[in-house]
């Protein structure tokens, strides 16, 4: 088991290295002069030269990369051009809203999607199954921002149940915090629910076709027991896997949702950084999000050890 954990930990290193290389190359391989791109259209030659110098853009690529990785390893993501503060500090400031939104979304999605998926698989081909499949195609298809505006229009503008936009930090009290967060989280969870419910249904369905389910029924077990301790227990690995992979989808959704609901989080920061061509911030945010994604999926893989006793290699 410890071998498996150690091996899995080590295997994240090449992925992180490649992410770093890709993010590094993003700017360097852009056609044209990177310094000029960074400086913007109105920049003077002198400003461009300054940028070239500070980034070391005149040196060979491997040297640039070595310098950059060296800074990265010290936790230095550089300084934002636009905000004029360290990017790490910028990320830390924006972390709470994004993490709260993501956490609430995941909780809602799991609580809703897993039971729905199990029931749909159990009643495979029935009206509930068809309804859920229909809903999930819809969930995949409706853009997050369209859904967001629809909910704002309905629940905030027409019904007045929720504030239209904005964010209240948890330090200002849990009630207002949650009140502001519920609508964005519901918006964001729809696509996640669609994904998770589909995968739950498919994996439970596959488990239900296995011989051990027939054995469990032949033992005269109650159907609920067959479903939960046999079918769902065996479907756990693919379900947890998709929760991990879905994080990528979630991060994409965060960027859009924070824009719609004017939440001052990392997603909003990403868009602002892109619009103001604040390159160190763009790099920093992408690296940070990718790091989160890799770590979450590492944790997911490690959870297999508890979910499936066969994984002990």
């Amino acid at each position: 088991m410890y071998q498996f954990i150690a091996r899995r930990l080590l295997s994240t290193i090449p992925v992180l290295v490649i992410v770093a290389v890709l993010v590094f190359l993003l700017l360097r391989l852009t056609p044209g002069d990177p310094a000029a791109i960074l400086a913007g259209d109105a920049a003077s030659t002198q400003q461009i030269e300054e940028i070239r110098e500070t980034l070391g853009l005149d040196r060979p690529l491997p040297v640039q990369f070595a310098i950059w990785v060296g800074q990265l390893l010290q936790g230095d993501l550089g300084e934002s051009y636009y905000y004029k503060v360290r990017v790490t500090e910028l990320i830390a400031q924006r972390l709470e809203p994004t993490m709260s939104l993501a956490a609430l979304t995941i909780v809602i999605a799991i609580l809703v999607a897993v039971p729905l998926g199990v029931v749909a698989a159990w009643r495979f081909g029935g009206w509930f199954d068809r309804f859920l499949m229909g809903f999930s195609v819809f969930g995949f298809s409706v853009p997050v921002f369209v859904l967001g505006y629809l909910l704002v229009w309905l629940a905030s503008l027409k019904l007045g149940w929720f504030p239209v936009q904005g964010y209240k930090p948890i330090a200002n009290g849990f009630g207002p915090f949650l009140h502001h967060l519920v609508l964005p989280a519901i918006t964001l969870s729809v696509i996640y629910i669609a994904l998770l419910a589909r995968v739950t249904r498919a994996s439970v369905l596959e488990a239900l076709g296995e011989d051990y389910i027939r054995t469990a029924r032949a033992k005269g077990l109650a159907e609920s027991r067959v479903l939960i301790s046999h079918a769902l227990a065996n479907a756990a690995v693919p379900i947890v896997t998709i929760i991990g992979i879905g994080i990528a989808l979630l991060i994409g959704g965060v960027v859009v949702t924070e824009s719609v609901y004017a939440i001052p989080g990392l997603g909003r920061l990403t868009v602002d950084a892109v619009l103001s061509r604040d390159f160190p911030t763009i790099q920093g945010v992408i690296l940070f999000f990718s790091f989160i994604y890799v770590v979450v999926n590492l944790l997911v893989d490690l959870s297999y050890v508890f979910l499936d006793p066969r994984i002990r290699y």
Binding site: V17, V21, V255, Y293
Partner: peptide
């Protein structure tokens, strides 16, 4: 590596 960076 590419898949570790969210598509958007």
């Amino acid at each position: 590596g590419i898949m570790a960076i969210p598509a958007i």
